[in-house]
Design a protein around this nucleic acid. Structure first.
Lengths: 216, 216
DNA sequence: GTCTATAGCTTGATAGAC
DNA sequence: GTCTATCAAGCTATAGAC
């Protein structure tokens, strides 16, 4: 694979990422992607296979990078706390920090990628493939860490708490601008620093309330 | 409009609701909807206009019912507490209870409708139309009630807290089955009673933690 | 209200020349 | 690796018969 091929392929993946994030898998045609990448239609097939493969490649490309970063952060906070289990807040931070930082400062490609993840997470058609396959193995490791941090919690409460965190996090990534209008400009979808500052205490408080041992 | 027309139109709307919820706006063709409704393609246009109009009709149909119910519950809990402001937990319950009850016990149509809302809420293409237009006027009334319940909170914290609640709630409605696999069967996407029991305390704890007056 | 027929496009995918 | 050309299929939307 020569250098030209490599950048052509990249241009296709970048264009696909952008358009899939904006309009969803079915909302975009291969021709539209080719046009946005300034590349001939036939080259999309040549470099990235069929539309389905293209989508999976786009989805997987950055998932691997992210999962490595998040796992490294989890292990770091485990070591810092050892031999005690890590604090819940630190675990949640290890889970969300790499994402919010990339979305805020990683450039437009990353921002769009997260908007795509948000749609996939809420799609009955795509979530069972995309999220379960590419993210849940990592999530299991975080669940295990939370179990250590909250030793009296029941599994059901931990899983549901994670579920709520996942929903809050991915809606943030969707960057729909809804909160901008709702708040009359007080909050901005793009202000991920404000989100990060709030999401960790918000969800940690939720976890603790649900997982209190004296609950029932 | 005769009786036959009325039920034909209903069959079309029901079929559209189901398919839009499963595969999104672009993932479904008008022909597919006609086939599912057991109706001629031309009748879809005759009764429901173009595809865009059909989508908006489906989206609006149940939004109106829901918003009436939620507003009635909010006013009821306001009156119960008067002259004091209502409790935060009661406000959140008024916001979520009608939805979770309809989704759990309203039948398949309602369940599918909520899955559709989940996708719209996370779509940069559709959220600015669907959510902002049809739901945010009601949300403003809930925000106002929360402002009274937490008089020392800053607006930013209230809006972001609402945003997290919205994400957690709509991901629940998406019914993707992701949590079923993740939890190895301990939790089920369809078990909305378990969600309702947990979502109110979880999000209320988050609100309170973020909106503490001694925060900064 | 319902159906047949069709106009006029766009779609995903590839075969074959260079 | 790239582009031209093309296919068969599907699409939205409507006109017109009944």
């Amino acid at each position: 694979m020569g250098k030209a091929a490599h950048t052509t392929r990249r241009r296709i993946l970048d264009a696909a990422e952008k358009l899939f994030a904006e309009k969803g898998f079915h909302g975009v045609s291969v021709r539209e992607i080719a046009r946005a990448a300034d590349v001939d239609v036939a080259l999309v097939n040549y470099h990235c296979g069929r539309k389905n493969d293209l989508f999976e490649t786009v989805f997987l490309r950055r998932a691997e990078v992210l999962n490595r970063e998040r796992l490294a952060m989890l292990n770091a906070c485990r070591e810092r706390a050892a031999p005690d289990p890590p604090e819940l807040e630190d675990i949640i931070d290890a889970f969300t920090h790499p994402l919010l930082t990339r979305s805020a400062r990683g450039g437009a490609g990353w921002r769009r990628y997260f908007a795509l993840v948000a749609q996939v997470n809420n799609s009955p058609e795509l979530a069972p493939i995309g999220m379960t396959r590419y993210f849940d193995p990592l999530v299991q490791q975080f669940i295990a860490a939370i179990r250590e941090a909250l030793p009296d919690a029941r599994d059901e409460d931990i899983y549901w708490s994670y579920h709520f965190l996942s929903g809050a996090l991915t809606l943030t990534f969707a960057q729909t601008g809804r909160i901008d209008k709702l708040s009359g400009g007080v909050c901005r979808s793009s202000d991920l620093a404000s989100v990060h500052e709030r999401l960790v205490p918000y969800t940690a408080a939720g976890f603790r309330r649900l997982c209190k041992p004296d609950k029932d």
